[in-house]
């Protein structure tokens, strides 16, 4: 800070030397007829130079690929790097093929359940913990950091922890816990067997996501002024009434944000699916996994690469995000409460 002031000071001296003779303070106010235009032009150049790189990156990595993916989804493309001249127009064939593919339909079924059941569980648990943390518990910062901790762990490490320890059927945490509690039927569950693999995956994903949404809810709740709760308490309102009448209505917008973020996360569900079954399987497949397998050849052979079909899946995923986004905004209309 000090250094910067010094540099500007030096600049100022330099300018005084240069313009001092003319009795002018700085080049910015230097206007003689069309001089103002010159300054304006320079400012425009400055703005373009500072904003340009970010906008260029956006156009190259977001805007152009987006359009190209949409185009690709209507073509049959022989190889991943085939030039446009080798593309063959296929109309809606890629989309029709996609909806006739059993694996893709399974992926839609899975993603729907992940979104609904996982979302209800995650948001409910996260809200529950946020309310507890906002109620004035001792050591709030510690609890908050502790609950968020799993979110900072590498997903590969976290998924391995669940698969190789928590769900392990010889020395696993759940097995040990349920056995010591005497709940033998629960202890017998083999979480990594095909019957339970999906639920195991969903459970571990929910447990890994709660911290993030807890933080978002907590930030929303903490913005509510405390005198609202005080007057409610004086009027004899209990914890439940306070939650349903004050907290929840006032964090509706935060809830909507959380729901949107959950949707984006759920639709892009991939890492956990890949970790829970290294080879594509209808039990855990999600649309992104399906696309990955189709285009980047996860378990398939190089000749089976289908860039056009993959692009169609990508477009479908984006359309789903868009529809859910619009639906959320319609259903949970913005209601601004002044507080």
């Amino acid at each position: 800070m000090k250094a910067s002031v010094r540099i500007c000071e030096a600049q100022k001296r330099h300018n005084t030397e240069q313009f001092g003779a003319m009795g002018l303070k700085s080049p910015i106010v230097f206007t003689d007829g069309n001089g103002g235009v010159k300054v304006k032009h320079r400012e425009r150049l400055f703005m373009a130079g500072y904003l340009g790189p970010a906008v260029l990156c956006f156009l190259i990595i977001f805007a152009y690929p987006l359009i190209r993916t949409i185009l690709m989804s209507f073509f049959v493309i022989p190889g991943i790097s085939s030039p446009v001249s080798e593309w063959k127009f296929a109309g809606l064939d890629n989309y029709i093929g996609m909806f006739r593919n059993g694996v893709f339909l399974a992926s839609l079924n899975n993603i729907w359940r992940i979104w609904l059941i996982g979302g209800a569980l995650t948001l409910a648990i996260a809200l529950f913990y946020a309310v507890i943390l906002a109620s004035g518990v001792k050591g709030k910062k510690f609890w908050r950091s502790a609950i968020y901790l799993p979110n900072t762990v590498n997903a590969v490490a976290l998924a391995t922890m669940w698969l190789q320890y928590v769900f392990q059927n010889k020395f696993g945490l759940l097995k040990t816990l349920f056995t010591s509690l005497g709940w033998t039927s629960l202890a017998k569950i083999n979480w990594t067997s095909p019957k339970y693999l999906f639920w195991g995956m969903l459970l571990s994903y929910v447990f890994g996501s709660v911290g993030y949404f807890m933080l978002i809810f907590l930030a929303g709740i903490e913005r509510i002024p405390s005198d609202l709760y005080e007057s409610a308490r004086i009027d004899g309102a209990g914890a439940w009434v306070q939650f349903t009448r004050i907290t929840f209505p006032l964090i509706r917008d935060v809830f909507r944000t959380a729901l949107t973020l959950w949707t984006i996360g759920a639709v892009n569900f991939f890492t956990w699916a890949k970790m829970f079954s290294t080879r594509i399987s209808t039990i855990t497949v999600t649309p992104v996994y399906f696309l990955y397998d189709k285009v980047f050849g996860g378990s398939g052979t190089a000749s089976a690469i289908d860039a056009g079909g993959g692009a169609a899946v990508g477009v479908m995923i984006a359309v789903i995000v868009l529809i859910v986004h619009v639906a959320i905004n319609r259903l949970l209309k913005e209601e601004v409460y002044e507080y």
């Binding site: 949107t260 984006i264 649309p287």
Partner: peptide, 26 residues
């Protein structure tokens, strides 16, 4: 510009990755 960046935040990466992969392969 501001709104495009906000939209960019919610575009699924799978929508972008196929053409980008083509460029890098080439």
């Amino acid at each position: 510009v501001l709104n495009s960046f906000v939209v960019g935040m919610s575009i699924p990466q799978v929508m972008l990755i196929i053409p980008v992969y083509c460029w890098f392969v080439r």
